[in-house]
Computed example of a mutant assay.
Amino acid sequence: MQRHVLSVLVENEPGVLSRVVGLFSGRGFNIDSLNVAPTLEDGVSHMTITTYGDSMILEQIMKHLHKIVSVIKVMDFADTPAVEREMMFVKVQAEGPMRGEILRTVEIFRCKVVDVSCNEMTIEATGDYGKLEAIISLLQRFGIKELARTGSVAMRRSKKVD
């Protein structure tokens, strides 16, 4: 199954989120992450939806999204150059000599320690999906106690001028 990141511009009105999410669940399609925020244009919001599935099912979902009156524009970034980022907090067990190793890992990935206690550290990390998965993989050996992720935010890359 392929990972798809969808950018959906919608009118910011009651019920639009419910209609979009209902479209996915009604067809048995799971949403991996969902991020919604206002745009510069009044009354318009930007949804970034991350999901997995084959391209035939996704094509049907996109066609149905276009039929929702409140949906302005839909774009799948699978075949479009895009910038994608996500933010997460990871709380890890951090006692004694492990602290130094955790700090080196944090430095390598350009993360920030945002909270510390005598036996835990909370780390803030920002990056694309692959980077965050790599950080989680490395921090698991210390004992991850809690994890919170924002979900992806994506935007089409600017066209390059020759």
Rank of each mutant, 00 (worst) to 15 (best):
T39K: 09
D42I: 08
F89Y: 14
T150A: 13
L6A: 10
K131L: 15
F89D: 02
T50C: 11
K145S: 07
R85G: 09
L132D: 03
P81W: 08
F29Q: 11
V21F: 01
M88R: 05
M75C: 10
E95H: 12
L138V: 12
M87D: 01
S158K: 13
L103C: 09
Q2I: 06
H66W: 05
V8W: 01
D42C: 00
V16E: 01
I68D: 01
K91Y: 01
A37Q: 10
D162H: 13
H66L: 11
G26N: 06
S152Y: 05
V114S: 08
T122G: 03
R85E: 12
R19H: 10
D42N: 11
N119Q: 11
L34P: 08
Q60Y: 06
I72Q: 07
H64F: 03
V116P: 02
K112E: 15
T48N: 15
M155G: 03
R85A: 12
R19L: 06
I136F: 01
I72R: 11
G100L: 07
L34Y: 04
V74N: 03
S70E: 15
V161C: 05
C118Q: 12
E13I: 13
A94Y: 01
E133K: 13
N35K: 12
V74P: 01
I102S: 08
L23T: 07
E84S: 14
L58H: 07
V10C: 08
E146K: 13
S137K: 14
E124V: 05
E13Y: 02
D54H: 13
S158Y: 08
A82M: 09
S18L: 10
K160D: 11
G28F: 04
V10H: 04
M121V: 11
V153C: 11
T126Y: 00
E86S: 03
A134P: 00
E59R: 13
V16L: 03
T105Y: 01
A148Y: 10
V83W: 00
L17G: 04
V8T: 03
L40Q: 11
I144Q: 05
E41W: 04
S7M: 02
S117H: 06
T126Q: 11
H46M: 09
F77E: 02
M1T: 13
G130N: 15
L132F: 05
N12Y: 06
G96L: 08
D54K: 09
D115C: 09
C111Y: 04
S152R: 13
I61K: 02
D79W: 02
R156K: 15
Y52K: 12
D32E: 15
